[in-house]
């Protein structure tokens, strides 16, 4: 029967793309502000899975707007090392690779032929490779400190856009968000 718990399990299976030996107790759902150059606003959403002890893999999709320069949309896969201390403080370092598509923003794109004819051009944008480094030094896991299935984090992302004018243009972004650990175990829900 396709109830909510079963649907979530299928999503987990698809996301993990590996044989499921044991179903996870919870599904982490992440939502974060993604501020390119700190203040050009964006957002990303994703999920993560624990690989081994403090190592995680994650997948995210996001978008941001650098007003009157470009809009970006990306999908990323990352591998991270996260250390969570018993009091709740956590820090994380990660690296990843993804795809970034950018569209020029703020105005119409024109072309001019050699004969001087002016035409509007559709804004198809540009495809780029997006290598990425994450550094989150301010995290708090409320599961440790308050038994709440939520983790807050903030940090800096360094990412590249390649190719860009024949080189890789570096960007940096601020991330400020949280991960909610959706309980997949119905028995635990009943107890609460």
């Amino acid at each position: 029967m396709m109830n909510k718990a079963n649907i979530l399990k299928i999503i987990t299976l698809v996301f993990l793309a590996r044989p499921i030996m044991a179903l996870p107790q919870s599904l982490p759902l992440t939502l974060s502000y993604f501020g390119e150059t700190l203040v050009h606003p964006g957002v990303y959403a994703g999920s993560e899975i624990s690989i081994h002890e403090n190592f995680l893999a994650s997948l995210s999709i996001g978008t941001y707007l650098h007003y009157r320069h470009h809009r970006g949309a990306f999908v990323n896969a990352d591998f991270s090392w996260r250390k969570t201390f018993s009091i709740g403080y956590s820090m994380e370092f990660g690296a990843g690779l993804g795809y970034l598509h950018t569209w020029s923003h703020g105005g119409t794109i024109y072309t001019v032929t050699d004969a001087g004819v002016v035409e509007e051009k559709p804004n198809y944008g540009f495809s780029s490779l997006m290598p990425k480094l994450n550094l989150n030094l301010l995290g708090w896991d409320f599961r440790k400190s308050h038994d709440i299935p939520f983790r807050a984090f903030s940090g800096i992302v360094l990412f590249g856009q390649y190719p860009y004018n024949q080189f890789m243009m570096p960007h940096f972004a601020l991330q400020l968000g949280g991960t909610y650990y959706l309980n997949l175990n119905k028995e635990n829900d009943h107890e609460k």
Binding site: H69, S104, G106, G107, I109, Y110, T111, V112
Partner: peptide, 13 residues
Amino acid sequence: DFFYLENKGAVMP
């Protein structure tokens, strides 16, 4: 007014 000129691979504001 703000717009772009695209010419030979460059999109110039």
